[in-house]
Design a protein around this nucleic acid. Sequence first.
DNA 1: GTGGTCTAGACCACG
DNA 2: GTGGTCTAGACCACA
Lengths: 129, 129, 129, 129
Amino acid sequence: MLINLDFESNEPIYQQLVHQIIEGIARKEIAPGEGLPSVRSLASDIGINLHTVNKAYQQLKQDGFILIHRQKGVVVNPDGVPKADANYKKQLEKNLRPLIAESICRDVSEEEFLRLCSTIFETYQGGSA
Amino acid sequence: MLINLDFESNEPIYQQLVHQIIEGIARKEIAPGEGLPSVRSLASDIGINLHTVNKAYQQLKQDGFILIHRQKGVVVNPDGVPKADANYKKQLEKNLRPLIAESICRDVSEEEFLRLCSTIFETYQGGSA
Amino acid sequence: MLINLDFESNEPIYQQLVHQIIEGIARKEIAPGEGLPSVRSLASDIGINLHTVNKAYQQLKQDGFILIHRQKGVVVNPDGVPKADANYKKQLEKNLRPLIAESICRDVSEEEFLRLCSTIFETYQGGSA
Amino acid sequence: MLINLDFESNEPIYQQLVHQIIEGIARKEIAPGEGLPSVRSLASDIGINLHTVNKAYQQLKQDGFILIHRQKGVVVNPDGVPKADANYKKQLEKNLRPLIAESICRDVSEEEFLRLCSTIFETYQGGSA
DNA sequence: GTGGTCTAGACCACG
DNA sequence: GTGGTCTAGACCACA
């Protein structure tokens, strides 16, 4: 799995890492139960600080995406990721809302917006087909 | 128009302000050409520093949402906001992608996701109907 | 002579006025000795504040472009504008320098820059031919 | 690279800073990809507030002159500055026009004006020759 | 009264 | 250590 970081982005590196790993899971490039590189090796592979990788892993663990075993190392949660709960959906709406508001102001139609979402969905589901 | 800030959020206050004003424009609560409160009055209304309001206004100006008119003060761009260009859509996709990836991991179906988007769209377009 | 102000510009209105009048003189639309509208009438014509017009006139007087007679009103300096002195040229260079520096950074060649200047010169000298 | 500010000038300090840095880039004293001092160190070197430096940096970033790299700090845009587009040229003409108009009024000939521009150009291109 | 600029000092997230 | 954010208070130019 390829990690692609933008060091000039406003998005913190550890956040980009989190997103990239989640995308890898969504794209089924990394299956539940499968192992991830150790903090140390991943950090040196990408050329970033240990702390940064660690922070990403901690957040992924926090959100139930991965488990961190002292011995087995880092693995994708074999039970799968916790399903979306009300809380998650509330958060999702909160994130979506400003994107949609600005899109409306910029004359992006609802159809076009939904079409864009579908296109992105395909990017991931194509991998599972 | 009501401004509702969350001082506990990680999202910077000025960003929240930007979003809220954009939402106000999307909801057509503030019409093009209409005036916005002065930096000082808005700041004291919300109970934040005028520099924070100013930063929000500067960003909105930068993005073409508002103009700073020497006589009328701060006004919503009467020509409307610049339409979505390729750049904006690229940015939009970049913002949408991690939300969709995580939703997939959490077993949110595409239909459900699109339905949520539609619901949010209605929040705004209901105002114009 | 037409005055064309941009109320959304960063350039103060009185400065814009000063520039427009100087351009009028350069374009020979207003000849030396000729009269300019009174502060009051110009202000109401353009729809701006008296003080603003006054400030512009004061600066033009200061720079030797116009004379303000108590009775004859405002007239373009019949002796012509003071020639460029060393001081003016120093100032001119100081204003030109950042424009040229940025142009170089943006890959505007010297020829292109000079050509642009010539084109602008023609705008004025065409009027005298 | 030397920074030379005039605290008596009407030109805001942060603007002067922006210009000086652009001149430094034009003079090739700072090469693309090369680092600039941190906000704090530059501020204390010059003896101004760090916010003032920051404002200058933000504007340079906005205009594509510099990047804020999460690891390398502030660097001159390695891809070079965006070329002059129609918009920039329009702006340039708008800035040049009043300078030329006043020069005409003050009897500066076109040749002399162009010669001055050339002289300034040499100031920068001499560095690359 | 407005926005624009500058200063000063503080806290935080990031790497 | 960095930049990002927020506050507070000041002065000035503009209209």
